[in-house]
C-alpha cells in the first residue's frame, strides 16, 4: 500500500498560487476581456497539456500564445499550417553539410517544433500526413527521424488554432490527434466595452510591455507544486463516473448521451481532467481538488473527445449541451438518494 502523501504546506502553496495569480493578471492586462480563457489556458499549461484554440481569425489567438511565451520566458515558434506543409517543415530535416574535417555528412536541422511553445496556426489546413507528424511530439514529447529520437525542450506545449469556418480545403483533425489535446477552447467574440477599451488603449493593437516574467525555475516550482496537489478519492470517483457517463449505454449516462453520442471520452480524458482539476485547485490556492474544479474543466476536456451522431445535428444539440446535462444530472457526492428526498444546507449546526 502506497503511503498517503501529506498535503502541501501552506507556505509552499501560497507563493506558487501567488505567482500564478500574477501571471493571470498579466495575461488579463495584455489581452483584454479574456480572463476565463486565460485561466483555462493557464490550467492547460500547468497541466502540461496541449490546447486547441478554435475561433475566428483576429480574435487574439496568436497574441495570447505570444504573450504566454513572453511571460513564461519560454521559446516560442509559430507555424502556419498550409496544405503543402510537409512534416519536415515542422520536425526538421537532415541536410548535407561540410564538416570541419572536410567531410560531408548529413546533419539534422531541427524544425520549428523544437521549442517550448509551438503555435500551430490553422492546424486543420495541413495534410493528414503533416498533422500526424505531430502525434509523437505531442504525446511522447520527442521526435524520431531516421531512427534517431530527439527529445523536445521541456516544457513543450502545442497551442493549435483552427478556424471553424472556411472549411473548404481543410483536413479535420483525426480523433487520435484531437484526443492528444488537453483542452479545446473556444475563443469567442469580445464585448463592445472591451473592444472600446482595446481601441482606446492599444495603437495598432500592440500589447503593452510588461516587466513580469516567470523564470524557468519558478515555472519548474509551479510544476512541482502541481505534482503535490491532492486529489481526494471521492473526486477521482466523480471524474471516473463523469467520463464513464459520456459513453452511451453507461450506467449513469443521461438520456441525451444515449440519444446523441456515438462515442464517449477516452481514459485519457479522465487523466486530463484530473490534471486540469489539480491546476484549477492550484490557481484557487487550495492543496486539494474539489468538485468545483472538476466541473470547471469538464467541458473543456470533454467537448472535443465526444463524437456526436447525425441526430444531434438535426436536433441542434451541441457537445456542450450534452456535457451540461451530464454535469447537471450527475451527483458529485454519489449519495444516490431518491428523487423525492432532498438535502438542504439549512440544517442544525452541531
Amino acid at each position: 500500500m502506497t503511503p498517503t502523501p501529506s498535503l502541501l504546506d501552506v507556505s509552499e502553496l501560497e507563493p506558487a498560487a501567488e505567482r500564478v495569480r500574477q501571471l493571470l493578471e498579466q495575461l488579463d492586462r495584455i489581452l483584454l476581456g479574456r480572463s476565463e480563457l486565460h485561466r483555462m489556458v493557464l490550467v492547460g499549461v500547468l497541466s502540461r497539456g496541449h490546447i486547441l484554440l478554435e475561433g475566428l481569425p483576429g480574435v487574439g489567438k496568436t497574441a495570447l500564445v505570444k504573450a504566454l511565451g513572453e511571460l513564461m520566458s519560454l521559446q516560442f515558434n509559430r507555424v502556419q499550417f498550409t496544405p503543402d506543409l510537409m512534416p519536415g517543415d515542422i520536425l526538421g530535416n537532415h541536410i548535407l553539410q561540410d564538416t570541419d574535417s572536410g567531410r560531408r555528412e548529413m546533419t539534422f536541422q531541427p524544425g520549428p517544433i523544437f521549442t517550448n511553445i509551438l503555435l500551430a496556426d490553422e492546424i486543420n489546413r495541413a495534410s493528414p500526413k503533416t498533422q500526424s507528424a505531430m502525434l509523437e511530439a505531442m504525446q511522447e514529447r520527442c521526435v524520431t527521424m531516421l531512427g534517431v529520437t530527439r527529445p523536445l525542450p521541456d516544457p513543450f506545449f502545442v497551442l493549435a488554432s483552427q478556424n471553424p469556418i472556411e472549411l473548404e480545403g481543410t483536413y479535420p483533425l483525426p480523433e487520435a490527434q484531437l484526443d492528444r489535446f488537453l483542452f479545446k477552447l473556444h475563443v469567442g467574440d469580445v464585448q463592445a466595452e472591451v473592444l472600446e477599451q482595446i481601441i482606446s488603449s492599444r495603437r495598432r493593437g500592440e500589447a503593452p510591455k510588461t516587466d513580469f516574467q516567470l523564470t524557468g525555475e519558478q515555472l519548474a516550482e509551479l510544476f512541482a507544486v502541481m505534482e503535490r496537489i491532492f486529489l481526494p478519492k471521492p473526486v477521482s470517483r466523480y471524474i471516473a463516473r463523469l467520463v464513464a457517463a459520456t459513453h452511451p449505454g453507461g450506467g449513469e449516462a443521461t438520456e441525451a448521451v444515449n440519444q446523441y453520442v456515438s462515442y464517449g471520452a477516452s481514459p485519457r480524458a479522465a487523466i486530463a481532467m484530473a490534471e486540469a482539476s489539480r491546476a484549477c485547485a492550484l490557481i484557487a490556492g487550495r492543496p486539494t481538488v474539489g468538485f468545483e474544479d472538476v466541473r470547471a474543466v469538464a467541458a473543456a476536456v470533454l467537448n472535443h473527445r465526444m463524437i456526436l451522431n447525425y441526430k444531434s445535428r438535426f436536433d441542434r444539440v451541441s457537445t456542450r449541451d450534452v456535457i451540461d446535462g451530464l454535469l447537471e444530472s450527475l451527483d458529485e457526492t454519489g449519495l444516490d438518494l431518491p428523487s423525492d428526498m432532498q438535502v438542504t444546507a439549512t440544517g442544525e449546526a452541531s
Binding site: 486529489l231 466523480y238 485547485a281 487550495r286 486539494t288 481538488v289 468538485f291
Partner: peptide, 15 residues
C-alpha cells in the same frame, strides 16, 4: 463528499 460540497471546502473535508 456531500459535506465538502455543502461547505465549499474545496476537497479539504474529503482529504
Amino acid at each position: 463528499a456531500m459535506f465538502d460540497r455543502q461547505s465549499a471546502a474545496g476537497g479539504l473535508v474529503m482529504a
